[in-house]
Amino acid sequence: MRRVRRLRENLVAYLFLSAALICFALFAWYPIVRGVLLGFQQVTFAQPAEWVGLDNFRRLFADPLFATAWRNTGYFTLLALVFGFAAPFVTAVVLNELRRGQSYLRLTVYLPVMLPPIVTMLLWRWIYDPGPGLFNKVLDVLHLPAQQWLESENLAMVSLVLVSTWANMGTTTLVYLAALGGIPGELYEAAELDGASIRRRLWHVTIPQVRFILLITLLLQVIGTMQVFVEPFVLTGGGPNDATVTILLLLYRYAFVYNDFGLASAMSTLLFVVLGLFAGVYLRLTRNKG
């Protein structure tokens, strides 16, 4: 009787919860399971799905672009950690130290996030234009030679990382600002009384206090940058000479250029497993460091 009475008391809550679970199952878990199953099938528009086992994965490893895409994506992720992970934190620290105009500068930093991605890409395509582009105009003023930013194998990936950092750092900067705002002022006052310099206050007070946020954003950034697609798709198309072909760009080609959805699903399944394993290992290693 007690269980029945408790069920009646919480019936409305269970109904709301069941609706949320149904929506989550239909629009989150079902597509994931369906995508994994497609990785073991031959799927095209021309014929019904046919179970082929591990053939899609064998064809993946036999494709020369498969290794190239993973290498390029890893290189992009490494560059993004060098630029994109440090830039938001440094920006947040600088903004947090300002006493005037902080709200205006926060808005300025966040503005790129509010731009549609395609608008951002078209803007940076003009900036990188080898003729009248902004960067080459600046180099001309400085009497330096113009660069083929998106047409050079050495510069194309770095150029894409700069675009990604500029477009996405606003959200991370605001997260860091919120974390910095929660640090007790007494810690900085004690450090100043001890004669600590700005660098030592940053290293011994600021970073330890926001260590958990830094660890989480690092994980999210690795997962996000491993799935880079818009920048190479719009700006370089994977060129020059496949120097910017990424995992998701190759996956897009499999599905919508070669019309091989089984191969594309196998690629996405492999990426899902790799990122899942990385996240699990990372969380285990950093479990007691937050």
Rank of each mutant, 00 (worst) to 15 (best):
A92Y: 09
A92D: 06
A92V: 05
V93Y: 13
V94L: 15
V94F: 15
N96W: 07
E97P: 01
R99Q: 14
G101M: 06
G101R: 04
Y104S: 11
Y104I: 13
L105Y: 09
R106N: 08
L107D: 08
L107F: 10
T108Q: 02
V109P: 10
L111W: 05
P112N: 01
M114I: 15
L115V: 10
P116E: 01
P117Y: 00
P117H: 01
I118Y: 07
I118H: 11
V119L: 02
M121K: 02
M121G: 07
L122H: 12
L123Y: 13
D129R: 05
P130W: 03
P130A: 02
P130D: 03
G131A: 10
P132Q: 02
L134H: 15
L134F: 15
L134C: 13
F135K: 02
V138D: 03
L139T: 14
L139N: 11
H143K: 13
H143P: 03
P145E: 03
A146Q: 14
W149H: 02
E151A: 12
E151Q: 13
E153Q: 10
L155I: 02
M157R: 04
V158H: 12
S159D: 05
L162P: 04
V163R: 00
V163N: 02
T165G: 01
A167S: 06
A167D: 01
N168I: 00
N168M: 03
N168F: 02
M169F: 10
G170S: 03
T171N: 07
T171C: 04
T172Q: 12
T173W: 09
T173V: 03
V175A: 06
Y176I: 05
A178W: 14
A178T: 15
A179S: 15
L180D: 08
L180I: 09
G181F: 10
I183F: 03
P184A: 10
G185Q: 08
E186T: 12
E189L: 07
E189A: 12
A190P: 12
A191S: 13
E192W: 06
E192I: 04
E192T: 11
